[in-house]
């Protein structure tokens, strides 16, 4: 079945069996391996993407159900803040995860960032206020992290909320992540 959808702002078209999981469509034909699979049953949240702005587990969504809808993956977050090339493709939220220790092994990070992004859109962008500690914890409660104990994830999101719409992402990232290199690392030797 041919499915037309918008992925990270671009119109894309995939031809797949209709019940193909959105996760497999993203990681396969769409070439976006930033979205991870940790459990395949909607428990770990590693495959979280935004579907029309709401966070969903891409392992529980049929690709055909995304016809005409918009999907945002971790690869699409950097572009949100503009001037991606100057910032190594990092948004403030992503940069905060690097500076505040929100990412350790990194496997939950893409999904965690997406869930956090949904929260920041709702609170900072939508209501012009910072989320509370409890709101942050609720927003990422569907994203299991086994490395951090969550404290530094909460801190990273709080910092991103404090900076969002107040500083220029490009300037902030250049200043705080002087040697950010976001290009793909560690392919097959």
């Amino acid at each position: 079945m041919i499915v037309r959808l918008e992925v990270n702002g671009e119109r894309r078209l995939v031809d797949l069996p209709p019940l193909t999981r959105l996760l497999d469509a993203l990681r396969g034909p769409l070439g976006l391996t930033g979205t991870k699979e940790g459990c395949g049953e909607g428990e770990c949240g590693s495959c979280t993407v935004l579907l029309d702005g709401d966070p969903v587990n891409a392992c529980l969504v049929a690709t055909a159900q995304c016809e005409g809808r918009s999907v945002t993956t971790v690869e699409g977050l950097g572009a949100l803040d503009g001037r991606a090339r100057e910032t190594g493709g990092l948004s403030l939220l992503q940069a905060a995860f690097v500076t505040e220790g929100g990412a350790q092994c990194g496997i939950c990070t893409p999904g965690m960032l997406i869930a956090a992004e949904a929260l920041l859109r709702e609170t900072v962008d939508g209501a012009n206020r910072k989320p509370t500690d409890t709101e942050i914890r609720e927003a990422v409660a569907g994203n299991i992290c086994r490395c951090t104990g969550y404290q530094r994830i909460v801190d990273s999101i709080a910092q991103a909320a404090a900076l969002r719409r107040r500083v220029s992402p490009a300037d902030w990232v250049r200043e705080n992540l002087p040697f950010a290199k976001a290009e793909g690392t560690r392919g097959l030797l």
Partner: peptide, 9 residues
């Protein structure tokens, strides 16, 4: 960190 947060790792 950067490659992990943009999904290229």
């Amino acid at each position: 960190g950067p490659s992990k947060v943009v999904g290229t790792a």
